[in-house]
Design a protein around this nucleic acid. Structure first.
Length: 418
RNA sequence: CGGGGAGUGGCGCAGUCCGGUAGCGCACCGCGUUUGGGACGCGGGGGUCGCAGGUUCAAAUCCUGUCUCCCCGACCA
């Protein structure tokens, strides 16, 4: 992507009306635009980060046998009435609206009911199960108070996975595989070492649910971490009884603030039963389906990563999610300089490397400041000086001093084949 | 929803207490000089001061209502 063709700009000033560091940085660097409290649009750079996170999620969730769908955002109230969740006193953060004829509809905040209902068209036999279905979809929750930038929005991007199993044992096996996949995802995002599987309240279906909590000073949750066992206990279930049950000693736990980056639940048979979705077993008997649901906030993760991977000059994206791998800054307009910069841009692009090519007619300081703010992992400078000296200049975002490299060394340093 | 703070060119702010018809920095446009860490000079364009009422000869400024944003708390399938 050539920056001369990118409509967004960075700003020298931190936006007023945002105190959350993630929102300040992402707005200042032009990744997102605030539409209203808790609602953000994703601009070209932000969209890339979001897609990169989503792709990592797709790979891991697909890897445990789930298939992707795209469910509707508008949902009929009848389905939700079957499980009692249309009632505002049961679920108080619905966005509801009406069709022209007065029919009420809700906007997707989760999808157990519509997906189970959809499945009833296809699942009849034990041979049809188990099945695992997920999607990456915007969710709408009418939060009383949105806050902390991308961390708690009213519209946000979430991966939601649902499992449909024949027995509790079959469910339990998949549940653990899902938990493992979650930890793989966090590891690839660079937060594996500060993310803990955490016991949390399970609702009415099971004693506990499992949250995935990433330690952060901006976290909304208080958790108690056992480093040796790599697990946490959410304050909401932090009682002597629970500790005894989990064989945990208060003295070994450390209180921390954390961000909930995932939450997985065992749902039992309640939803499928309520929606009249059953299967016939080997003996010809009607059986209930055991469900599980598995949420993971994509946009919240983007906010968390922005918050966590940043310094005083701006964002410092992990390579796995960065909007580009290389920031190519061209300094000067000498014909040889332009030619060499264009050539490197094309070569990297052809090799499948995403490059932000700063081909704008601006001063070096501005380009360097933008490169730092946007937080691309590698910065390559091509200037009249480097061309004359026959070298390329490479600097990693995390480092302060650049290196002078020859063409082959540069390609090697960037990990490009050939 | 309770408490606190804030809405003034695209962005960040001053002006409000003490009413007199809006200013600064950045950004933007033109010319010139610059050119490796956010350059400089000169000249420009752009704002019914969130909105609606009210008081007054006169309102960004005073009064009332209302909307929005931020923070703390509560809440959070």
């Amino acid at each position: 992507m050539r920056l001369s063709q990118l409509f967004t700009k960075t700003s020298k000033t931190i936006p007023a009306g945002e105190t959350a560091r993630n929102a300040q940085l992402l707005i200042q660097a032009g990744f997102i635009h605030k539409e209203m409290a808790g609602v953000y649009s994703y601009l070209p750079l932000g969209k890339r980060v979001l897609d990169n996170i989503a792709d990592i999620v797709r790979k891991e969730i697909g890897g445990i046998g789930a298939v992707e769908v795209q469910l509707s955002v508008l949902q009929p109230k009848e389905i939700w009435e079957k499980t009692g969740r249309w009632n505002d006193e049961v679920v108080d953060n619905w966005f509801k609206t009406q069709l022209k004829n007065g029919t009420e509809v809700g906007m997707s905040l989760t999808n157990e009911e519509p997906l189970a209902n959809t499945l009833s068209d296809f699942v009849n036999s034990y041979k049809d199960l188990p099945t695992y279905i997920y999607q990456i979809q915007n969710k709408f929750r009418n939060e009383l108070r949105a806050k902390s930038g991308l961390m708690r929005g009213r519209e946000f991007l979430m991966k939601d996975l649902y499992s449909f199993c024949r027995t509790q044992a079959e469910h339990d096996t998949f549940y653990e595989r899902a938990a493992d996949a979650y930890m793989k995802i966090y590891a690839q995002l660079g937060i594996g070492d500060i993310t803990y599987r955490t016991y949390a309240s399970g609702g009415i279906f099971s004693k506990f649910s499992d949250e995935f909590q990433t330690l952060s000073h901006v976290g909304e949750d208080t958790v108690y971490i056992h480093e040796g066992r790599r697990l946490g206990v959410n304050r909401e279930v932090f009682t002597d009884g629970v500790l005894a049950e989990l064989n945990l000693n208060r003295d070994e736990l450390v209180e921390k603030r954390a961000v909930e980056v995932g939450n997985i639940f065992s749902l039992g048979t309640k939803y499928a039963d309520a929606l009249d979705v059953y299967f016939t077993d080997e003996e010809g008997r009607k059986q209930s389906i055991v469900m599980g649901c598995y949420g993971l906030g994509i946009s919240r993760l983007m906010g968390l990563l922005a918050e966590h991977f940043a310094d005083e000059r701006g964002l410092v994206w992990p390579e796995a999610v960065a909007p580009a791998k290389v920031y190519l800054a061209r300094l000067g307009n000498g014909p040889d300089t332009v030619k060499q910069a264009d050539e490197l841009y094309n070569r990297l692009t052809d090799a499948g490397v995403l490059v932000l090519y700063d081909d704008r007619d601006m001063r070096a300081g501005e380009k360097f400041a933008d490169a730092d703010l946007i937080g691309i992992p590698y910065r390559v400078v091509i200037s009249d000086k480097t061309v004359a000296a026959g070298v390329y200049e490479l600097k990693e975002r995390r480092q302060s001093e650049p290196r002078q490299l020859g063409s082959d060394e540069l390609v090697k340093a960037l990990g490009i084949p050939g």
